[in-house]
Each structure stands twice: as C-alpha cells, then as structure tokens.
Write a protein that binds this DNA or RNA. Structure first.
Lengths: 217, 217
DNA sequence: ATCGATTTTAAACAATTGTTTAAAATAAGT
DNA sequence: ACTTATTTTAAACAATTGTTTAAAATCGAT
C-alpha cells in the first residue's frame, strides 16, 4: 500500500528539531543578544540537550550568524515586497512606510538586534553584499533616478533616501524603552504616539521627497 | 610650612584610580556591551587587579549602571545646552541638529550603547524620571506650546517632536555598519553621506515643523 | 527481527566567569 | 618612628561557560 509518509523524507515530526532550535534561538538571541544568553538556555527552552545544539549547528557563534542573517533577510524582504508592487513611486512610498510600521510592530526587537548584532565582533564577517543585489533587482533605484531626472522626486542620493526611511521607521520602534523612560508614559500611550507618528512620517517624507506634487499638503 | 598637597584631600595622583576605572569601563562597555566583556578585561586595560574593581564599585552590574546613567546624562545634556540658548525657536532647531550631529560624531557608540543597555535586564531599574525635569527646566516645552498656539509651529505632540529629532540624528550614526554593509561603501563615503544627511534633515524638519515661515525653502 | 544510520542523551572537559578573603603595600596622622 | 587607615594585590571560591566524547535511543529499510 502507498505510504504517504515516505514522501517527506526528512520530516518526521510536525516541526523538525532543527527548526525548533532555530525558532527558540531566534527568540532568545533577539531579547538577550549573543553574549547575553547561554546555549543551555536555548536548549532548555526547546526541551532538548545542549549537545544536540552543537550536533545540528556547529557552535553557538555559527547558530547566531544564521539567525542574524535571517533577520537581515527579513528586513530587506519587507522592503522588497513593496518595491515590487505596480504602483506610482509616491504610492510606493506611502505603502513602504505603512508596511514598515506594521512589520516592525510584529517584530519590535528586530532593528536593535540587527544593529547590536552587526557591532558584535563575529568570527566570520557577515556577507551583506547580496542584499544590494536583491534591492537592485526590484528596479527601485532606476525608478527613483527616472523620477529625479523628470523633476518628480527631489535629487537626493539613494543612500540618504534609505537613511531617511530607516531612521523614521525603525528608530521610533527601537527607542521605546528610552522614550517611555524619559516621558514617563506606559505602553498604551506609547502605542498611541507610534500610530500618530506613522502619519507624521508619511506626510513629512512625501512632502520632502516629492515637493512639486505636494506643495500644500 | 604650608603644605599645598593637604588641600586636595582625596586626589593623590594625576587621575584617581576610581576615575581611571570609570574611563576604561566606559570604553569597554560601549564597544562590547555589558555581557560582552569581563571585569578582568576592564581591569587589565587600566593596569590593576580585578579585586580593585569590586573594591571601588561593588559589582560589575553596579559599575555598568553608573556608566549607563552617565551616558544617558551626556545625551540629555547635549540637548539642554541648545535649549538654553537665547535664540528664536527655529534657529534653536537648526542648532540642535548641528550640535547633535557634531556631538554624535565624537561619540558614535553612544546611541546604540544606550538603547542596548536599556534593554538589558538590569537588577535595579534605571531612574530616568529626572531627565524629564531637566528638559522642562529649559522652558523648551512652553516655548513650543506658545509657538504652536501662535501658528508658527506645527501642532505636534512633543513626544513625536522628540522622536523626529532623535530618529533623524541618532539613527544615521547607529546604522553605520548596516549601511556600509548593504551599500558596500567605505568609511570616507559614509562620512560624506552623513555630512549631506545633516543638511537634508535640517531642511526637512524645519520645513515640516515650521511650514508657514518656510514655504519655498 | 535485524542491521545500519540517524538522532538524542548524560557526563565530563577545560576554560572563564564574578566575587571574596586575607595578606601585603602604601599613605596619612601623630 | 609608630600606628592606623587606605589602597592594592595574589590567590582561591564556587558557578557557569561552550564544547566534546561515548553510549543510548530511535528510526528506516531490508
């Protein structure tokens, strides 16, 4: 008789142990950082032995690099999604900010983890070069250059454009502890400020980058 | 005969050991984070025994809290300096951005250290409440409220104003590794982008916050 | 049922961790 | 010079670290 299970050669459980380790490692690394946690802590949260962690991944550092690279990829991919939409550049801009705030609300630890992780002196330097290619393939750079040549978009270096977006989308999420601490507000109030901030950022960036089409916005 | 040395009761050397430890701890903590370094590493960089570190400060955690609090204070103070200037609000805004970029160029590790440090689960929660008072005493909030009531300044919650400033000044500094990695640029190119970005941010924020006086800027 | 490969575990490894203790060196006061 | 207090050190502490080894359990196919 036909055995369905033989099809999935490597999947013996609902979720493979390897994936479960990755998930747990991601969560722990995100909140505590590389040197802020132990391999035993990760293993315990999965419910497995420490040695199994080194059986699947060679070392703590190797596992961390994997998680960091995946996080960076998520980051880029959340932008790529928007760039690939068939929309006017200005609408893409609005959509990018909306999606970015939405994405970061679900993964608020991501930005700080990535920046802190990159500053960590890792054994092997992380190869980020592929991400540039990933962005290039969406044609967003050419689209901006064209809009700049036609006077629709303000002539600003693409690195500075990137900085404008990331600054205004990522920082408000990363700075939660600092803002709540200084202004003595709770999570609800911070959430409200964040919602308002999204609209502020949208208007400010659109007005700055597309001044001709939005003179009196 | 009069002994001059008796005047400085506690200062026996050019720089006290206590201060030397603080300086070294600041440098090491900044670059490696709390759990990314060891007390022996700090002691070694000062040229003293590990035990002496616990003699002056009670523990590694206590020393870290001291450094983190000082860093946060530096942060706030760099803003307070500008707020206390006798200048029109719009000029203060320009000056704030200039000073902030200048200050952060000298202490580029500060923002990331503070945000990562605050997310670290420290034994005693850091008391940031005093910083709000420190800002209030400059009268900057009243000045903004007045400008908003008179229609000079856009009506935006002060928390959102703070977010706008910090986002656009701090993030570009914090994100150096990420930006250089993605766009494959070196330190010189990044420096150039940063210089240009300062002017971009200045114009964008001024135009957004003071739209009536800067319609065609 | 049996064999071979894969997966998982318990135990131990040496190295490093933050912290403490008790002794030594230095400074200060008389 | 002597005594006392302060500063500094060497050594040891128990606990924890990442990693490895060798044995046990589980699985897949015959």
């Amino acid at each position: 008789m036909f055995n369905f299970a033989t099809l999935k050669t490597k999947m013996k459980k609902d979720v493979s142990t390897e994936q479960k380790i990755k998930d747990a490692a991601r969560k722990v690394f995100m909140t505590k950082g590389f040197s802020g946690c132990t391999t035993r802590e990760i293993a315990k949260s999965v419910g497995i032995n420490v040695a199994l962690l080194n059986y699947y991944f060679r070392s703590k550092g190797k596992l961390f690099e994997l998680i960091l690279e995946a996080a960076l990829s998520d980051f880029i991919e959340s932008m790529v999604d928007v760039f690939q939409q068939d929309l006017p550049l200005e609408d893409k801009t609005r959509m990018l900010i909306d999606k970015e705030f939405e994405f970061l609300r679900k993964h608020p630890e991501l930005p700080l983890f990535i920046h802190a992780g990159l500053n960590q002196e890792s054994d092997a330097e992380l190869d980020q070069s592929k991400f540039l290619g990933r962005l290039h393939k969406t044609g967003i750079f050419e689209e901006c250059e064209k809009a700049q040549a036609q006077g629709h978009m303000r002539k600003v270096n693409m690195i500075n454009v990137t900085l404008l977006f990331m600054s205004n989308c990522h920082f408000p999420i990363m700075s939660k502890k600092l803002i709540c601490g200084i202004y003595q507000i709770d999570d609800n109030e911070h959430e409200a400020r964040l919602n308002e901030h999204k609209e502020i950022v949208k208007e400010m960036l659109i007005n700055y980058l597309f001044p001709n089409t939005n003179k009196h916005a």
